[in-house]
Design a protein around this nucleic acid. Structure first.
Length: 403
RNA sequence: GCCUGGGUGGUGUAGCGGUAACAUAGGGGACUGUGGAUCCCCUGUCCCGGGUUCAAAUCCCGGCCCGGGCCCCA
């Protein structure tokens, strides 16, 4: 037997119903905020990702050479492609430019819960403004999406890299290694690196919960952003320990966790960054975030969220040799957009009802010779257990009113 | 890449050297014109490859896959 590749998944009809539902909800909220959807290729030049993230990522991507020897990679994320698209053909669009996207990504990782080799992400970019209201709206949007789809237990943390870097300058400890240790929350190692005294200063620094306790000028802008987020009625925690290893991250950073998910609990991350010049475009403020689609769904399931069930089809059963008449009826229903399914197993009426019952169908039409002679069929209500003969001409009005 | 637990019909499990079993799901029938109950029948399984043994689902080794934790998380 050939099975699916490690870290990939098949989705059952039940799962696809949930996924398509969630996808639609999230799209609607992006659109509600004035974002418009884009889509980029599944494959990109490997260079796009090494440019953004360094050579180190090569071993974590699915990359290969195509038949002309081009180095190609299955996209491990969607931000870089979206930025590439902007630089390649959207630089002259009216600002602010608000775009969002949804797609599958691939990473060569060790799979575990909430982490797959093929996974889906939603994301967006806000291009052209770094005003406090722009960042405030962006962050509010991310939180709003997760709340609106039905998550109850999520935590938004907001930090600021300018402030963090300014602090590290003040204790003479600003370098990439230190940032990485902070990012990883490896405080034991950080203590060794900074020394007892400076480490204590750091711990005091990241305990800060009110931004007005900070005297750096960057704090003023962050304060303004936070007060505008208050206007959007979004709850958050200030968390100055949020770090990012790479240089193009600037200013505001934020993360949203669903604590129920354990080790892989982060479901959203974003902030401000300066990627456009790296890709050869004209410098412009950009910010955005990405939402882990699979994890959002896992979090909903972990919270016991009740997904809407789709409407069940009307079932058309028939007796004996009435298959042609059954097709006529089914065709009529479908022509009128009434979801319907007819017996394809040649089952007896008894077995047909058993089947319809098991599938949770609410209406069954039985096509039988005696009634057909009178231009009638039997319409059975599976919940009430009642049935009656009705004129074929009446089917549509009855089913439209009853379903 | 590392540590750790695990893989038995479609699904959930028992068996843990000696004829693979139970439940459930699937198909049919009892009920040739009526569902949810009951009963009967049928289909279908030891992840893969080596090794040990008279004998391996069972023990050993390797691989693959799944879960949990690291690393990483652009």
């Amino acid at each position: 037997m050939v099975s699916k590749p490690r870290g990939t998944r098949d989705f059952t009809p039940e799962e696809m119903e949930k996924r398509r539902w969630l996808e639609k909800e999230i799209r609607n909220i992006f659109e509600l905020y004035g974002y418009r959807e884009i889509s980029t290729p599944t494959i990109e030049h490997l260079e796009l990702f090494t440019l953004k993230s360094g050579e180190g990522i090569i071993e974590e991507t699915y990359s290969f050479e195509d038949k002309s020897g081009r180095k190609i990679s299955l996209r491990p994320e969607l931000t870089a492609p979206a930025m590439r698209f902007y630089v390649e053909s959207m630089q002259m669009e009216t600002k602010p430019l608000k775009i969002y996207y949804f797609g599958n990504c691939f990473r060569y990782d060790r799979p575990q819960k909430g982490r797959y080799r093929e996974f889906w992400q939603f994301g967006c970019e806000l291009i052209g403004s770094d005003k406090p209201e722009a960042i405030a709206e962006l962050i509010s949007l991310s939180y709003d999406i997760l709340k609106e789809v039905g998550l109850r237990n999520i935590i938004l943390r907001i930090g600021n890299l300018d402030i963090l870097r300014r602090f590290l300058d003040s204790i003479g400890a600003r370098d990439a290694r230190i940032m990485r240790l902070i990012d990883k929350k490896d405080y034991d190692e950080l203590k060794k690196e900074l020394g007892e005294e400076e480490f204590k200063k750091f711990m005091d620094f990241i305990k800060i919960k009110k931004i007005d306790e900070i005297e750096y000028e960057e704090a003023e802008r962050m304060g303004e952003i936070l007060s505008l987020i208050d206007e959007f009625s979004i709850p958050y925690n200030v968390d100055l320990s949020i770090a990012r290893g790479l240089d193009y991250y600037i200013g505001t950073v934020f993360e949203i966790d669903a604590p129920k998910l354990g080790a892989e609990k982060q479901i959203c991350g974003g902030g401000e960054y300066n990627l456009v010049p790296l890709l050869g475009g004209k410098k412009i403020p950009t910010s955005g975030f990405a939402i882990g689609f699979d994890r959002t769904l896992l979090a909903l399931e972990a919270e016991g969220f009740e997904f809407n069930k789709k409407e069940k089809p009307v079932y058309v059963a028939y007796m004996g040799e009435m298959i042609r008449e059954a097709i006529k009826i089914t065709k009529l229903l479908r022509k009128n957009k009434i979801k319907s399914e007819m017996d394809l197993m040649g089952r007896s009426i008894s077995k047909s009802l058993e089947y319809a019952n098991k599938k949770g169908m609410k209406k069954v039409i039985i096509v039988a010779p005696e009634e057909w002679e009178k231009k009638k069929i039997i319409l059975k209500d599976m919940e009430k257990g009642e049935q009656r003969e009705i004129d074929i001409d009446e089917i549509l009005t009855l089913l439209v009113n009853h379903s």
